[in-house]
Amino acid sequence: MPEATMIMYEEEYQQIKTILSKLRTDANSKMVFLIDKNGQQIASHGDIGNLDTTSLASLTAGNVAATDALARLIGEKEFPVLSHEGERDNIHTSVVGGRVILVVIFDERSSLGLVRLRVKRASAELNEAFERIVNKAEQEKAGGAKRNTPFTEISDDDIDRLFSDDSL
């Protein structure tokens, strides 16, 4: 398989949440999201309200994937930053370390310049955090250490039960 399963443990999750929280405050933005390039939301911070964050993650990843493909078509490696300007709200999207997508939603209380500046700093911190996640996974693999994972015990009954629900 080209990509291994990504595992996020509580410790790293909290580190990432802290970085996002700081970015949101420093950039004076409404919400920030971290999404993996396949469209899964990793973490978010801010006043999410009724926003459909699952759809946001999927559409953002689609948008970034399409933009990357466009870049390659014209001979560019990538367009690392996307910016969408609306009447009230704006979206700043950037790829961090080639692996995750950072989305900042902001309104007139902030500015594109400020967001770009703060995103740059947060990106470096996020990149370090993901390096640690990857290193940890590799070390565990190399050391043959087995973390207590509940997934080795998934039984056929567990799987069947998912589909036996009457609500389906």
Binding site: T5, M6, Y9, E10, Y13, D36, N38, I42
Partner: peptide, 8 residues
């Protein structure tokens, strides 16, 4: 790529 989040 399955994404497992132990936090959530």
């Amino acid at each position: 790529m399955t994404f497992i989040n132990y936090a959530s």
